[in-house]
Write a protein that binds this DNA or RNA. Sequence first.
DNA 1: ATCAGAGGTGTTTTT
DNA 2: CACCTCTGAT
Length: 713
Amino acid sequence: MINYKNELNQGQYEAVVRTENPLLVLAGAGTGKTRVITYRIAYLINEIGIEPERILAVTFTNKAAEEMKHRLRGLVGTAASSVWMGTFHSISLRILRRDGSAVGLKPGFGVIDQDDRMALFREVIKTLKIDHKKYPPKQYMNKISWFKNTPQYVERQIPDAGSFHRIDEVFREYQKRLDEQFLIDFDDMLSLTIRMFEVSEEVRQYYSSMFEHILVDEYQDTNAIQFMFLRLLAGRSGRICVVGDDDQSIYGWRGADIRNILEFDKHFEDVEVVKLTENYRSTADIIARANTLIKNNAMRRGKELTAHLEMEGALEHHSLLNETSEADFVTKMISKYADEGVSYGDMAVLYRTNAQSRNFEVNLNKVGIPYKVVGGTAFYQRREIKDLLSYLRFFDNSFDSVSFSRSLTTPSRGIGTTTIDKIRDFASKNAVSLIEAVKQMFPSFSRNQQEGFRQYVGIMDHLASFTKVSDMVNGVIERTGYKDYVLANESEEEAKKRIENIHELYNAAVAFEETSPEGTLTDFLASTSLSTSTDEASGDRVSLMTIHSAKGLEFDTVFLTGLENGLFPLYGSIDEPEQLEEERRLCYVGITRAKRNLYVTCAESRIMYGNRTVSARSYFLEEMGFAKAKASFTPSTRQFDRFQPKARKPMQPQGKEASSNSKAGKKVRHEKFGDGIVISTSGEGASEKAEVFFKNAGGLKKIVTAFLTFVDE
DNA sequence: ATCAGAGGTGTTTTT
DNA sequence: CACCTCTGAT
């Protein structure tokens, strides 16, 4: 049926048929990674005779899993749906649903989503009377999230006391509340699964022998405990195949450990390695730029892509005056290509930070070009959706206090925080559910409040009369009068959008019933917590997204924007070689998204923090070989600091060579903060301020230039 | 209990 | 700039 030899090149073929030993596939951008994975699974099923449900395939996003399943269906038909395919998180969740009792989870446990988790941290900080201004809840959340991704947490340790203000207390209190509410958070999915494997040899054995073959996509972005997960299932000599590209590792900040891929052959026995370097995506020009850029990185296994498509395209760099002209330029080019017949869905505008999307949005709107901002607020994060779901969440889990207070107060019923806090206390002290607390405390409420509660409890009772998730969704929409509430409180335009979303929620519930006929409300709610904005379809519209979100995607025409020092590479990374390398990899990912046309832009100044700041061209521009901007698009005569094209230890900025009107990159000294590097400047004359990164004194600070001494080297 | 307005604060990137 | 939280007025 499938002719593997004909449909794959030599390297891909090897990657597909070597199924005995641990296999590392180093697959550069556009070298047919997805093809390898799908064909390998097909090969395992069709040629080796492995049962599809004994194959585990881990992807980076839910969307990638869907895409892969779709492609696999084309190769093996309905068997595709039996393969275990999904992200580490979704697979872990599935495992925990079945065996979570081994680590003390109650069968119907819920999953708290990111926003609610943040809300929970705020509560905790408040209860512990910690000054949230001095110690923002967000920091605790990040630190604890980070900690939950370490082997120590898997081993049940508690964060090092003293490492951050009262963090162990916060951790305990936060965890206590989660436990009380029978909730787990995002990070728990993975760490609890691994803990379970360690605690229960029986469970581990069950999954380990069930999965005869494990495949992992985007292996370069796995972290320490994801590695543990794989090791526990596959053993040291197991049948595991990981596919990745060390040059595309861009999640170090999230704990991804590039050593997982660099040292794969140390972690497993008898490892075979296949390198895929033949690129079938981009023009030779694009590949050449990508290669020269990434050569500047020291931490890599080292490989060079070769272009295999006979195709011509544009590859240009344009330096624009400011962020508006950058957006103008991009918009103009998009129109041009659209006129030439390139469809909108085949074009993408990429940037380093989400905040940059605005200018493009404004301009594209003006001209009427359809676009989609990927990575904005995810569907399930929208206010109206969260409001409605909070009823279902509370109905599903009457211990969930975040959902309780949200649903109880939207639309408002004359019950406020004071009363809610009382109910919480009561429930917590008596170890009863919140709904039980309400019932017992009922006589103590004022008449008005009693009316509110009666209505609220009525909705919950109403929900109990349904079995189908979609009916419940509909029930909430009807009984809360949510549409009227929206119409009464929002502008007509806004209300229309929200109501559309509400209908979409109902559709999602119907779709859920179709894809998982056995699925419960709990499952549906968990799936909403796992869903992210990158999972949503984009249609025939121009994609606006961060380079991180663009990972794994490709477009005919790509605009890579904002190539300025301080923005891309971003501030903090400039002085840290390792981080700078990650930024460079990110740039590499950006370049290699383009198939035919690539435009790389920068702006000489842009508004940041509300004032206009001038910044220097990105190091990466010179490294890609864009030594000078095109004359026609550089009205400014300003000179920028230049760097040796092949500096190894990237770039101690050379202050001396900078011109007088751009101080970016210069080394400075401040009486109090010590040595630093100027990132950008704003203002004129005596009020001129410089944004300076102080390595040893708290990072980025804004200082009036007069207080700085410029240091010559 | 709710809302509007002031004022302070901080920004990467996301499963 | 844009968000968020706190405050004081209804």
